[in-house]
Amino acid sequence: MRSPICSLLLASAVFAAPLAAPLVALGVGAAPDLAHAAVPETKRIALVDLQRVLMETTQGKNSKKDLEKAVAKSSAKLERKAADLQKQYEDLQAKAAMLSESELMRRQQELMVAEQELQELYAGAQEDLAKKEGLLMEKIYKNASAIVQSMAAEEGVQIVLVRSELTVLYANPQLDITNKVIVAYDKKFK
């Protein structure tokens, strides 16, 4: 004995088949013929790891060194100011018992202002360094982009993707033109 659901499915299949045949003959509901569809043919795809271009080109390496020097210089200046401020705090703690209440309050206020200024200097230094890094990276990116466009035109590449773990899960290593881009970049931008 068949279940009511099975009987209902069988009946709907029997009645639907004769109705669907004329529609398929007219091309309605039929699967598209992919062999004859007008799909543009992709000749070639390439990948470029821009992070490697940034880190491995001569200009990128020099920019990184310049940024590291700027960070070291800024850090040394901030560390000196922080050490000086710490010394002032320790000095105030040592002399607190000998100072009048108004003098103690005045010095504490001065130290709080100095600490706030130090925090502002730190934030400003971070902002300046981030801005410098952004400008350097933008310059290298624009240069690399121009080189990639030129290489793509020469080699008949229609699509160049940025290779990263977030954008490309897998690609044939033969599609990666990063090494060529680095060599061309170093030749053009010394």
Rank of each mutant, 00 (worst) to 15 (best):
R44C: 09
Y122V: 08
K43Q: 15
L54Y: 04
L92S: 02
F189K: 00
P4N: 08
E154I: 05
M112T: 13
I177R: 11
M1T: 11
N179R: 13
Q109K: 13
E155G: 08
A114R: 01
E133V: 08
Q59T: 09
S145Y: 10
R2A: 15
L50I: 12
Q119F: 11
P173D: 09
A83L: 11
A171Q: 13
T58G: 09
D91W: 03
A46Y: 00
S164N: 14
E154N: 07
V162K: 12
M1A: 14
A123D: 06
R52K: 12
V148C: 03
N143W: 10
V53A: 00
A76R: 06
V71H: 10
Y141A: 12
L50T: 09
K43C: 07
A114V: 00
V168K: 00
T42Y: 04
L47Y: 06
Y89R: 08
S12T: 15
T42I: 15
M151R: 07
M55I: 08
Q126L: 06
N62L: 14
N62T: 13
E68P: 03
L23M: 08
I140G: 00
D49G: 02
N143P: 03
G29I: 00
S164Y: 08
S63D: 11
E103G: 03
A152Q: 02
M105L: 09
T167R: 09
E120A: 14
K142S: 13
Q93I: 05
Q174Y: 09
G27E: 01
A16H: 06
F15G: 01
A152C: 02
E138P: 04
E101C: 05
Q88Y: 01
L121Q: 12
L54S: 08
D84V: 06
Q51S: 14
R106H: 10
A11P: 03
V14A: 11
A125N: 05
I182Y: 01
S12P: 05
K188S: 05
V53P: 00
L169N: 14
C6F: 11
V157W: 06
I5F: 07
A37V: 08
S164A: 12
L99K: 04
S7D: 13
F15D: 02
A94Q: 13
Q116V: 07
K180E: 06
T58K: 08
A20M: 14
Y141T: 11
L104S: 01
E103V: 09
H36G: 09
S63W: 00
C6P: 04
M98R: 10
Y141R: 10
A171S: 15
E117L: 11
E120R: 14
V162P: 07
R80V: 15
L118F: 04
I5T: 06
L23W: 02
L111S: 01
A96N: 05
M137R: 12
E138D: 09
R44S: 15
P32D: 00
K142D: 15
R106A: 13
E90I: 12
M151F: 03
L54M: 12
A70D: 14
Q86G: 14
G134R: 03
L34Q: 01
V24H: 13
D84M: 08
Q93N: 14
E41A: 10
L26D: 08
A153Q: 05
A94Y: 03
S63T: 07
K81M: 14
E127M: 10
L50S: 03
Y185N: 02
Q149G: 09
Q158T: 09
M98C: 03
E110G: 08
Q116F: 06
